[in-house]
């Protein structure tokens, strides 16, 4: 069902944990649809993401996309981190089953939410960053019979 890369990131998730006094923290998803992701960013004065950690409640794909997303933004500038789309996360994982695509969207949203929190805390505006939605579940399509 999952690619080897997804399984690798699920079995050995990178950057699990919390950052005390993080520069930005973003939580997205909801318990109703079964996925919650929280991303912690440590951003230095030059706007470089020095450290990133995550916590996720969710399925195998949710854990793997969180893990991959943290790897993709670590050491990057804020602008580079904004370019980490759900598509990039999926490609880096060698794809996801169609029903799990929402997990990669969640990973993108979580990074954006953490960056938004950073911007709010520092009273700055980040070009190209919009206030993240709290809940992406409404975009999901109905099961068909």
């Amino acid at each position: 069902m999952y690619s080897e890369k997804v399984m690798d990131h699920f079995k050995n998730p990178r950057n699990v944990g919390e950052i005390d006094n993080a520069s930005g923290v973003g939580t997205v998803g909801n318990a109703k649809c079964g996925d919650i992701m929280r991303i912690f960013l440590d951003i230095d004065e030059d706007g470089i993401i020095q450290d990133v950690k995550f916590k996720t409640f969710g399925c195998g794909a949710a854990v793997a996309t969180s893990s991959m997303a943290t790897e993709l933004v670590k050491g990057k500038t804020i602008q580079e981190a904004l370019q980490v789309t759900n598509k990039a996360v999926m490609e880096a994982l060698d794809g996801l089953p169609p029903v799990k695509v929402h997990c990669s969207l969640l990973a993108e949203e979580a990074i954006h939410a953490a960056l938004w929190d950073y911007a709010q805390k520092n009273g700055i505006q980040i070009e190209g960053l919009e206030q993240p939605k709290n809940d992406i579940s409404e975009e999901e399509e109905e099961e068909d019979y």
Binding site: D35, G58, V63, K100
Partner: peptide, 26 residues
């Protein structure tokens, strides 16, 4: 979450199932 639990049980050779959304595709 149930699916994560199932995959990790599977890694230990234990087959179970879950009413988790993620196992059903909805």
């Amino acid at each position: 979450e149930g699916e994560s639990l199932l995959i990790m049980l599977d890694m230990k050779g234990i087959c179970g199932s879950s009413g988790s959304a993620c196992t059903s595709g909805s």
